[in-house]
Amino acid sequence: MANTQTALKEAMTSIEGSLGAALVDYSSGMALGTVGGGKDLDLTVAAAGNTDVVRAKARTMEQLGLQDSIEDILITLGSQYHLIRLLKGRDSQGLFLYLALDKNRANLAMARHQLRKIEADLEV
């Protein structure tokens, strides 16, 4: 089992092309932990903004009457991938992992697979 900071570091080092990672509480929009990022990628701004994304999608699904849950959300930019993975554990409801990737260096399938593994090991 890994704690928040270890899991985020693991995401940064083991996932090729990682630019930044955050664990975010989407009931408040605040990050529980961040790794990487910097001047070009402010992870506290990303945490607050992507909270709105997750909430909007959850609301849309509710309005559509879909009795399902979100596993992950992929946003493809010109030069980056942004991956949002909602945590499913008993103690980690209401949290998501956020990962920004360099599109030229990242392998999307591999990144998703590794993020799933990191989630399974994460203990909040």
Binding site: V24, S28, G29, M30, A31, T44, V45, A47, A48, G49, T51, D52, R55
Partner: peptide, 8 residues
């Protein structure tokens, strides 16, 4: 409310 956004 989104407290992260509120702070920002």
């Amino acid at each position: 409310t989104n407290v992260g956004r509120l702070h920002m």
